[in-house]
């Protein structure tokens, strides 16, 4: 049986924002707030190289890296600690009509060039790791948001509890 959807109902779209430089915590906060304000975000993932808290290898192993501590960003009233150098932001939007808002938000927040790509960036089907981590009846919006080895509590933030306006971030 084929179900025909009405023309007015919009499908969620996924986009990736790829700036030409890595973002500092200040620019990250500015961009995330602009994106948040532009609305229509179902979920969001930020990705980039790890910023370790200590030297991980070599003669200096275990020494603290003070520069990477307390990198806090405030988004939607929630304070998050940055653990990566932000190089890529993936979003799921409620519909195509929010795309111009995302473009405008990036133009306002980023002082250098960027690319916005449309595609499919989050998986829909639970993997074995997801099953082991989240259980059988996991919220599908969590899938693909965090690294399989990352702790959900520290890597995931729920910015709004409303079902229709739930935003998550790594």
């Amino acid at each position: 049986m084929v179900t025909i959807k009405s023309d007015t109902e919009s499908e969620p779209v996924q986009v990736e924002i790829f700036p030409s430089r890595f973002l500092s915590p200040e620019t990250t906060q500015k961009l995330l707030n602009e994106l948040y304000k532009s609305g229509g975000i179902v979920r969001m993932m930020i990705q980039g190289p790890n910023l370790p808290r200590t030297v991980t290898y070599g003669p200096g192993k275990g020494l603290p890296i003070e520069e990477h501590r307390n990198l806090l960003v405030e988004v939607g009233g929630e304070v998050l600690e940055l653990r990566v150098k932000v190089g890529r932001i993936r979003l799921e939007l409620e519909g195509e009509e929010f795309l111009p808002g995302i473009q405008a938000a990036c133009e306002r927040a980023l002082p250098f060039s960027f690319q916005i790509k449309r595609g499919k960036f989050f998986r829909e089907i639970s993997t074995i790791s997801d099953y082991a981590k989240y259980g059988k009846d996991a919220d599908k919006r969590i899938l693909g948001l965090v690294d399989p080895r990352a702790k959900k509590e520290s890597a995931l933030a729920v910015l709004s509890e409303k079902d229709s306006d739930k935003k998550e971030e790594r």
Binding site: F22, N50, P52, I65, K85
Partner: peptide, 14 residues
């Protein structure tokens, strides 16, 4: 890797 905002090469150990 891409450069940092200030034009420096990214360094994980700062």
């Amino acid at each position: 890797l891409r450069l940092e905002e200030n034009g420096m090469m990214f360094d994980m150990l700062a």
